[in-house]
C-alpha cells in the first residue's frame, strides 16, 4: 500500500549524492607538466604549470591531495555573490539560483582545499547560513503542499535528497485520500451536467 512500503522508494545516501557531485567541473591551476588523461567521461589535459584548466572535482581533489595543483574556487563561492544570494533567500519565497550540488561541492572544498579559498571562514559561514535559510524554506513549503502539482524551482540535490523519502510518502498518502474523496464528487458533477445542458440552448435562444 502506498506510503507504507520501505523498499519501494529508492533512496540515496548523502555519500552517494556527494559522489555524483564530484563529476562537476572545477578550474585548477596545476604545477606539474603532464600529458592529457583519457577517461571514459572525457579527456582532460594536457597539463602545463600555471595554465588553468577545467577538470572534474574528483580529479582536482586527487591532484590537490598530492600537492600538484591549486583549486580555483568557483565563481558563485565569492563573498559578494554569497551575500547577495543570502539576502535574496531571506527576502523572497523563491529559491535563488545556486549550483545543483552547492552543498556537496562547498563541503568538499572546505574539507580538502581550505587553503585555496580566500576568507574561508566567511565563505563557510555564508554557505551554512544560506543552507539553513533554504532548508527552513523547504519545510515551510512542505507544510502547504497537497496532492496538486508542486513546483519549486532551483532546489539543490542535497535538499531534495533530505526530503525525498518523506515527501514521496506524504504525496502518495495525499493522493490516495484525495481519490477517496473524488468518488462522491464525481456523482455530483454528473448530476449537474444535464442541467447545464438544458440551460445552454435557452441562453442561445434569447438573442434571436
Amino acid at each position: 500500500m502506498a506510503g507504507q512500503s520501505g523498499s519501494q522508494l529508492s533512496l540515496f545516501t548523502p555519500d552517494e549524492v556527494e559522489f555524483v557531485a564530484e563529476d562537476e567541473l572545477v578550474e585548477i591551476v596545476p604545477n606539474l607538466r603532464m600529458d592529457s588523461l583519457n577517461f571514459i567521461c572525457g579527456d582532460y589535459g594536457p597539463f602545463y604549470p600555471q595554465i588553468a584548466i577545467q577538470v572534474p572535482l574528483w580529479l582536482a581533489l586527487a591532484l590537490k591531495k598530492r600537492g600538484k595543483c591549486t583549486i580555483r574556487p568557483p565563481q558563485w563561492m565569492s563573498i559578494e555573490n554569497l551575500t547577495q544570494v543570502l539576502e535574496g533567500e531571506r527576502e523572497s519565497h523563491a529559491f535563488q539560483t545556486l549550483p545543483f550540488h552547492y552543498v556537496e561541492i562547498s563541503r568538499l572544498l572546505f574539507d580538502r582545499a581550505r587553503d585555496d579559498i580566500p576568507d574561508v571562514y566567511m565563505v563557510r559561514s555564508l554557505v551554512e547560513d544560506i543552507r539553513d535559510v533554504r532548508f527552513h524554506k523547504v519545510e515551510t513549503n512542505l507544510e502547504n503542499f497537497t496532492a496538486s502539482a508542486v513546483t519549486w524551482k532551483n532546489m539543490a540535490a542535497m535538499e531534495v535528497n533530505i526530503i525525498r523519502a518523506f515527501s514521496g510518502r506524504a504525496l502518495q498518502a495525499f493522493y490516495r485520500h484525495e481519490n477517496e474523496q473524488a468518488v462522491p464528487d464525481l456523482d455530483r458533477t454528473q448530476d449537474r451536467q444535464p442541467q447545464n445542458l438544458n440551460d445552454r440552448p435557452r441562453r442561445n435562444l434569447r438573442p434571436r
Binding site: G6, L9, L11, A165, F166, R169, A170, A173
Partner: peptide, 10 residues
C-alpha cells in the same frame, strides 16, 4: 513510517 523516513534522512 513517514516520521521515520524523515528522521533517518535528516
Amino acid at each position: 513510517n513517514l516520521y521515520e523516513a524523515a528522521q533517518s534522512s535528516m
